[in-house]
Design a binder for these strands. Structure first.
Lengths: 207, 207
DNA sequence: CCAGGTTTTCGCCTAACGGTCGAAAACACG
DNA sequence: CGTGTTTTCGACCGTTAGGCGAAAACCTGG
């Protein structure tokens, strides 16, 4: 979600939402407050620190140190945004202000990694979804096609996925009706990454 | 590596090395400069951002936002440090200043995770080492015993380990001489994490 | 109502990976 | 030379992930 700057420096270029840190808030409270001016905060399904960007020349003529965040919104949410704000695909950004393109790249990279070795994914999906829809989300976030079969098995084996019992009607071109799934409640926050060198002999399933 | 504070606040408690950000440096240059006053910077095998700690009350009476770093030094290095500075095992910290204990816990957690799903590990090991020595390093960093057999196989299969051909003489209690290994050059920086939902059919070995 | 097309689901197969164990190798010491 | 110690290596096995194709369940058009 980018915001078109009205003033110099970098007027008419697009920048990430953000702003100064208040005296009585930490950086996460601050970014949530900044976002609340653009979009309903309750729609944020996941927020995590990304990195500090502190190149002395990143903002011309001014010393600005930025703590960048990765914030996710479920795919079924389409928040209304102000007229100077718009959504852009991360693969086709417009001309950005400052180092915000690098920040976006970093965020995309972080998202792709965490989708693979954590249970992040609940943060992208709506409450109920088909495997095809989830596959589209993962493919879009990762940048390459994933197998629907494998995606369902991997997530199920980790105990993250649960069938709701419902189905959706097929589209006009036909096809078998798709079953609906949800992420099991209780797993709706990011857990520890899947570990590969495990402690001996106490089956921990990487939890 | 902790440093005993001489002045208030939190006098005589132990704190992580650090200091203010200069006008012409980014945060990484700053922490490297701060560390250079304590230990030779060239001995740092890995430096990465950990997180921003910005609780308004983290430093009494003063607004201080800290960017915490994880810095690693190979195990064969034993840097000389000033008299007010000392090394402590992360499992047995003394009374720490501010939120520095939480920072240490976070750093330990990050280290353990990255040892498992990246090639970090070269940053802990000396140029040449035996599998037993590497096993000790991993066990200490992870907090639990790992199998020497499995450690060698996992690292070898990822193409990170390479025998030097040399061996070391056994200790006074005997035993077969241990073979020496090194991390393959070219892998001496942290690479992408091992991905579990891979792109289709182009065997990428998770590189 | 049947034939052909479409989309999803599911089981099977296989390769790779990680965890474990035990035997064999290579040394020291008495 | 026998015993004890440490390392190395092969073998086994359950789990995991990737791939494939058949079957299921729907559509549309004739």
């Amino acid at each position: 979600m980018l915001w078109e700057r009205a003033r110099e420096p970098h007027a008419h270029r697009w920048s990430l939402p953000g702003g100064g840190l208040g005296d009585d808030e930490d950086v996460e409270a601050s970014i949530r407050r900044q976002l609340a001016e653009k979009v309903d905060v309750r729609q944020l399904s996941h927020v995590e620190q990304l990195a500090v960007f502190s190149n002395p020349a990143r903002v011309p003529g001014l010393r600005v140190v930025a703590t960048a965040f990765l914030g996710l919104v479920p795919s079924h949410i389409d928040p209304v945004v102000p007229s100077d704000t718009a959504w852009y695909p991360v693969d086709a950004l417009p001309a950005t202000a400052f180092d915000h393109e690098a920040i976006c790249r970093r965020a995309r990279s972080r998202l792709a990694s965490k989708l693979s070795y954590t249970n992040l994914g609940f943060a992208l999906a709506p409450p109920e979804f088909t495997i095809s829809a989830l596959r589209s989300l993962y493919s879009a976030a990762l940048g390459y096609k994933v197998s629907a079969t494998n995606l369902q098995r991997v997530l199920s084996r980790r105990g993250l996925l649960e069938p709701t019992g419902g189905t959706v009607q097929p589209g006009p071109s036909g096809g078998r009706p798709a079953a609906l799934f949800r992420f099991v409640s209780g797993e709706m926050r990011v857990t520890d990454p899947f570990a590969v060198l495990r402690p001996p002999s106490t089956r921990s399933l990487g939890s």
